[in-house]
Structures are given as structure tokens and as C-alpha cells.
């Protein structure tokens, strides 16, 4: 086990109400709320996970989705190493918005930024596949074209939420003591057993001892 902690600055982008905050809430507190207040400005949260024997600390900026707040987004993605671009699989408009964000990040953000395209709310489809408005293939295709990771998630059930973050963590060069594993890019397949969920209590609780 490595003692070095790699911090990953990650930003969430996407149309209002696609479930960005819910994804973060699931990841950080393993919780879900039916009616989550709209995010104003941006919210900051952290979570640690163990990935391949390394502790990775995600420093997450969950941005507000409404168009009016979009001018604030650069401040949050400017220094980010990773981004989740989230859309709602039941809302075609949100997929269009996701394309915009991809374009903007390619143009404006850090060139080595690891980006994941995330289609959220797949739980809605369980009872009614008609609700699906964005085909899985569509998302996959876009992700492939743009060189993004792709996941379909449900913040409600937790499906693929942690997986998304872990996949990002695996693509980010890790700070390791011996530096031998500097780039774990795709080398080790994520083993969910290794994710230290004991740590997934509550971001605020971890604050005290943290020095970064």
C-alpha cells in the first residue's frame, strides 16, 4: 500500500437536473435524495478511494447546470484534471448540451484532461424502456469519437457511479512512492474489491486531517 495520496481535481458539467449533484452525493455519501435543490454556483466535495493500492483523493467541483451560470464554469474546469459530462438518458436536450460541453472542454480546458461522458438516470428505464431518449449506442459513439470514457449510470440505484470515478482515477498518473507505476493507464483492470468504501462516509468528516 502506497502512502502517497494522489489528488484528482474533477469537475462535473451538464444540463440542469441531469443528476450531477446526485451522482456526487452517491459517490461521496452513498446516498440519494428524490428532490435535490438546484446547485447554485458550484459545490465542492471530496472523496477518497483506493485504486490499485493507491489512495486517490477526488476534489470535486459540482457545477450548476443552468445556462445562466455557465459563465462560471471555466473557473472550475480551468485547473481540473478530469471531468464528468453528464446527461439524462431520458432527455435528448441534455445530450445536445453534453456535446457542447465536450466541445468547450476540448477548446478551453487542459489538453490531458480525462473526460467521461455519463448518461444518468438509467433506473428510469427499468420499468419502461420507452423513456429512453438517448440510445446507449449514441452515447458510446460520441465518447469513442471524442476519446472519452463512457458510462451509463443511476445515481438512484448507484449503478456504475463508483466505477466511473475509479475508471477516471485509473487513467490519471498516480503519485507513487517508487514512481514505478506512474501511469496506471489501463494496466490494471479495476478491481472493485479494492475500493476502500470504508472511507466513503462523509466528505466533511475527512476535512480535518487533510492538508491539500
Amino acid at each position: 500500500m502506497n502512502s502517497a495520496v494522489t489528488s484528482i481535481k474533477l469537475v462535473l458539467l451538464g444540463e440542469a437536473a441531469v443528476g450531477k449533484s446526485s451522482i456526487v452525493l452517491r459517490f461521496v455519501s452513498n446516498d440519494f435524495s428524490e428532490n435535490k435543490e438546484p446547485t447554485i454556483g458550484a459545490a465542492f466535495l471530496t472523496q477518497r478511494v483506493n485504486i490499485n493500492d493507491n489512495t486517490v483523493k477526488f476534489e470535486i467541483w459540482d457545477t450548476a447546470g443552468q445556462e445562466r451560470f455557465a459563465s462560471l464554469a471555466p473557473m472550475y474546469y480551468r485547473n481540473a484534471q478530469a471531468a464528468l459530462i453528464v446527461y439524462d438518458v431520458t432527455k435528448p436536450q441534455s445530450f445536445i448540451k453534453a456535446r457542447h460541453w465536450i466541445k468547450e472542454l476540448h477548446e478551453q480546458a487542459n489538453k490531458d484532461m480525462i473526460i467521461a461522458l455519463v448518461g444518468n438516470k438509467v433506473d428510469v428505464l427499468e420499468n419502461n424502456e420507452d423513456e429512453r431518449k438517448v440510445a446507449r449506442e449514441e452515447g458510446e459513439k460520441l465518447a469513442e469519437e471524442e476519446g472519452l470514457l463512457f458510462f451509463e449510470t443511476s445515481a438512484k440505484t448507484g449503478l456504475n457511479v463508483t466505477e466511473t470515478f475509479v475508471a477516471i482515477g485509473e487513467k490519471i498518473p498516480l503519485k507513487t512512492a517508487g514512481d514505478q507505476e506512474t501511469d496506471s493507464n489501463g494496466v490494471a483492470i479495476s478491481d472493485e474489491q479494492r475500493i476502500d468504501l470504508a472511507n466513503s462516509g462523509n466528505a466533511a468528516g475527512q476535512t480535518a486531517g487533510c492538508s491539500c
Binding site: A43, F44, L45, T46, A204, T207, A208, C210, C212
Partner: peptide
């Protein structure tokens, strides 16, 4: 006595 993370987390909650 807080760092960046502490400050932001505190002020948001």
C-alpha cells in the same frame, strides 16, 4: 486554521 478544502466545505455547509 483551515485549508482550502476545509474552508470551502465549511462555508458551503
Amino acid at each position: 486554521v483551515m485549508d482550502f478544502q476545509g474552508i470551502i466545505t465549511f462555508l458551503q455547509n
